[in-house]
Design a protein around this nucleic acid. Structure first.
Length: 330
DNA sequence: CATCGCGTAAACACTT
DNA sequence: CAAGTGTTTACGCGAT
């Protein structure tokens, strides 16, 4: 392996966007279709670790209305990755925005937003969908599972055992699966260039336990994110639109979606790619915002024919509305 | 049909 | 010595 030890400085927090993906109209002729807004927002955060949720809780969230609110409290700030392979990733290229992963609510148990409640007028428009049994095999590849596990760890690094535990805790399928999947995990770690091995710090508690720690190589992180996003988007599309004969999700080669979009030119390029945007076919609306020092995420059915302003108002509770009032008046 | 990515199994060496 | 970890090879399968 060409792993050469290198210590990377703490990565700067991701300039998360206030992103709205609005595949509102089923009529592509309407100009409001697929309109998006991106505003500078807060540091990116990863979906909260669902490991503390009981299977029953997970199931209740799992079976909840597609109109769901999720929140995240853990942030990627303070990340300090030691990677054995070289890395030179610019801030612009660092697709640290994992906000879309909050959508994995239909894949993973997510923490419900405490203050937000489902919008009653929209609930009826979203019939409950049959969900895969808890024991069904996750749609994610082992690389994605490892990636999520590492990203979900406070130190952004995990021993193999920790990766096992994360997977088992988050995907009940692997609780009962034969042990071969662990071999696959190790196989992936060794074979994939996306992951790099870190020697444990002998002087710290890290020395406890066997083996090394594993982290995500920064230069491969965007690719991992993209794979994960595609997998999730594909899954969401197919699981949420049972009655809609949507073709296999056309995937965009770029990293548009809700990743930070800083340049107008890039935004325009993104808009030109909208027809290929998997989210545009998902029938769902994404709404991201920052509230009470937490990154909030809102998913709305896209067939509600709401305009952007209405959605923005609906997603705000009284407190947030008050806070946002001055902005809306501008 | 070839290629690629992925999952799985297995063997082996090394470490704790 | 056992168990865990890491590496490597091989094979099958589905998608492209």
């Amino acid at each position: 392996m060409e792993n050469s030890s290198q210590t990377l400085p703490p990565s700067s927090p991701c300039p998360t966007t206030f992103g709205v993906s609005l595949p509102f109209s089923s009529s592509p002729q309407q100009t409001c279709s697929n309109s998006r807004i991106s505003l500078p927002l807060s540091p990116i955060s990863f979906p909260p670790s669902p490991t503390s949720l009981s299977p029953a809780t997970a199931e209740s969230i799992h079976s909840s209305s597609p109109l769901s609110h999720y929140t995240a409290s853990q942030c990627l700030e303070g990340q300090n990755i030691q990677c054995l392979s070289s890395a030179n990733v610019s801030d612009q290229d660092d697709l640290t925005c994992l906000s879309w992963l909050h959508q994995r609510g239909n894949l993973l148990p997510l923490q419900p937003l405490p203050k937000m409640t489902p919008l009653p007028q929209l609930e009826s428009s979203s019939p409950t969908q049959p969900l895969p049994p808890a024991s069904s095999k996750p749609p994610y590849s082992f690389s994605s599972l490892i990636f999520m596990a590492i990203e979900d760890s406070p130190e952004k690094r995990l021993p193999v055992k920790g990766i096992y535990e994360w997977i088992v805790n988050n995907f009940p399928y692997y609780r009962t699966a034969s042990g071969g999947w662990r071999n696959s995990v190790r196989h992936n770690l060794s074979l994939s260039k996306s992951f790099c091995r870190i020697q444990r710090d002998k002087s710290q508690f890290q020395s406890v336990g066997k083996g090394s720690l594993w982290c995500v190589c920064p230069e491969y992180r965007p690719a991992l994110l993209e794979v994960l996003r595609k997998t999730h988007s594909y899954h969401s599309t197919n699981s949420n639109l049972i009655n809609k004969p949507a073709p296999p999700c056309p995937l965009t080669p770029d990293h548009e979606e809700l990743v930070t979009m800083e340049s107008v030119e890039y935004q325009q390029e993104v808009n030109e790619e909208m027809e290929k945007d998997p989210l545009s076919d998902s029938g769902y609306i994404e709404l991201h915002y920052y509230q009470s020092h937490q990154y909030q995420y809102l998913v709305l059915p896209g067939d509600t024919e709401l305009d952007l302003e209405t959605v923005e108002i609906l997603q705000l509770d009284a407190e947030a509305q008050e806070a946002a009032g001055s902005l809306l008046d501008l």
